[in-house]
């Protein structure tokens, strides 16, 4: 059954470039949570990286999206999340029409809300959260700017993320 060779780092990078946005969108759509979608997207691609040899070579996109979908559903099951859509709702009409004026306004509102929450964190996590989530800088970029170790920045990002998660969780926002 296994026809593929091991997945190299360069191959993984290609897959992320090709399917990263789709996978994240799937995870976000199913879980409704930005941070969870991030985690599951990472897990999806790491599973792809580890199990690439078992892939039969047919319909790569479907295979990767299947992993993402199943992981997202597993997360919802284990977390016991409320508001899990029913079978009827899930794949019918759940996909909103993005790009509409309402959605653009909503995105702006979400960004402003995120900015406000980032600022409410204690330093240095406020700046870290702003750079990472709002300005979407990478860890290596942030490390270079601050002249710090990447691992230290990664730790700070992780902590900022947990703080933001708690803030969102407290107010009942997904």
């Amino acid at each position: 059954m296994a026809t593929m060779t091991r997945c190299s780092e360069s191959r993984l990078a290609e897959l992320i470039d090709t399917y990263g946005k789709l996978v994240f969108s799937i995870c976000y759509k199913i879980t409704g949570d930005y941070f969870t979608a991030e985690d599951i997207t990472q897990e999806t691609f790491l599973s792809v990286f580890q199990k690439y040899e078992t892939f039969d070579g047919n319909n790569e996109k479907s295979w990767i999206c299947r992993i993402a979908t199943n992981k997202s559903i597993d997360f919802l099951r284990s977390a016991g999340r409320k508001g899990v859509p029913t079978e009827d709702e899930f794949f019918e009409g759940v996909v909103e029409k993005r790009g509409s004026p309402e959605d653009l306004c909503l995105e702006e509102e979400i960004k402003r809300d995120l900015e406000r929450r980032c600022e409410s964190l204690k330093p240095p996590y406020d700046e870290i959260a702003r750079d990472y989530y709002l300005l979407e800088k990478s860890v290596s970029e942030m490390a270079a700017e601050r002249k710090m170790n990447s691992k230290s920045i990664q730790t700070q990002v992780y902590r900022a993320r947990n703080m933001l998660r708690k803030l969102y969780g407290k107010e009942g926002l997904a």
Binding site: I16, G20, K21, L22, V23, F24, S25, E38, T41, Q42, V95, E96, K97, R98, G99, Y132, Y133, E136, K137, S138, V139
Partner: peptide, 9 residues
């Protein structure tokens, strides 16, 4: 639709 993923991912 418009797909999105964080850049640092």
């Amino acid at each position: 639709e418009q797909l999105y993923a964080p850049r640092h991912l």
